[in-house]
Amino acid sequence: MSTVTAAAGFHYPTRMAVIRLTNGDLVLWSPIALAADLRAAVEALGAVRYLVPPNSLHHTFLGDWQRAYPDAKVYAPPGLREKRKDIRFDGDFSDSPIAAWAGEIDLVIMWGNRITTDVVFFHHESGTVIFTDLIQQFPSGWFKGWRALIARLDLMVAGEPTVPRKFRIAFTSRRAARESLRSILAWPTRKVLIAHGLPITDDGQAFLRRAFHWLAN
């Protein structure tokens, strides 16, 4: 499920993911614009119990979803509590899994970036790692004019999804980032889902090593 959002004059196609736990509860990752047809499609899958803003940038529509599902628990990534005083947060993400998701969804916080701190998730049953902004790939021709030039220089339209240059430069502690990456690479990854780009459906481990070769070496 995707929509288009804007930041600094750039328009981004953005994906939302719905994870159904074994008990039927739904985890909504990076909620997009709430519309009647989307709400109906989500409710057909199960009960919305958790709302997940995965970093301090992906929160635009969070308030709408919380008003629609006031009983859903909302967990805050680093930096978001300060930005969204209007949101009721029920807890904060840490490097420990959420108790209700134990054995189904693991998480690692990618520490040390000045732009935002991504919480990276791993869904065990599907073998899927879920990234927000640290890995991106926009369609060729998506950006126009000077924005197209910036996107190319930033690796946002590279031949394969990768970490944009601005995020690479923004890591203030590569040591902390490498420690997080080691935990991510330890997952038995088969697929990779990203907010801005098409999913990686095969050999996710090898893909992640390519995407982060600049950090791992």
Rank of each mutant, 00 (worst) to 15 (best):
S2A: 15
V4C: 04
V4E: 04
T5L: 12
A7Y: 15
F10S: 03
H11C: 01
P13N: 13
P13V: 06
T14K: 09
V18R: 04
L21I: 11
G24E: 15
D25N: 15
L26A: 02
L26P: 00
L28T: 13
S30P: 05
P31H: 14
A33G: 15
D37F: 13
R39W: 01
A41K: 15
V42K: 11
V42G: 05
E43A: 13
V48G: 04
R49F: 06
L51P: 00
N55M: 00
S56R: 10
L62K: 09
Q66T: 12
R67S: 13
Y69L: 04
Y69D: 02
P70Y: 06
A72R: 02
P77V: 06
P78K: 00
G79I: 11
L80I: 11
L80H: 03
L80Q: 02
R81Q: 14
R81S: 12
E82S: 15
K83W: 04
D86S: 10
I87M: 05
I98Y: 07
A99L: 10
A100Y: 13
W101K: 04
E104C: 04
I105A: 01
L107V: 03
I109E: 05
W111P: 02
G112W: 03
R114K: 12
R114W: 05
D118S: 02
V119M: 10
V119H: 06
E125Y: 07
G127Q: 12
V129D: 00
I130H: 00
T132A: 15
D133T: 09
I135L: 09
Q136W: 02
G141E: 14
W142R: 09
W142M: 02
R147P: 09
I150M: 12
A151G: 11
A151Q: 08
L153P: 03
L153D: 08
V157N: 10
V157E: 07
A158R: 15
G159M: 08
G159H: 07
I169F: 09
I169Y: 05
I169H: 12
A170L: 11
R174K: 11
A177S: 08
E179N: 08
S180D: 13
L181K: 05
R182M: 09
S183L: 15
S183F: 03
I184Q: 09
L185T: 04
P188E: 12
R190V: 04
K191G: 07
L193I: 01
A195I: 03
L198G: 14
L198N: 15
P199D: 10
P199I: 11
P199M: 13
T201V: 08
D203W: 00
G204E: 06
G204D: 08
F207T: 07
R209I: 00
A211P: 01
A211M: 13
H213N: 13
L215P: 10
L215G: 06
A216G: 02
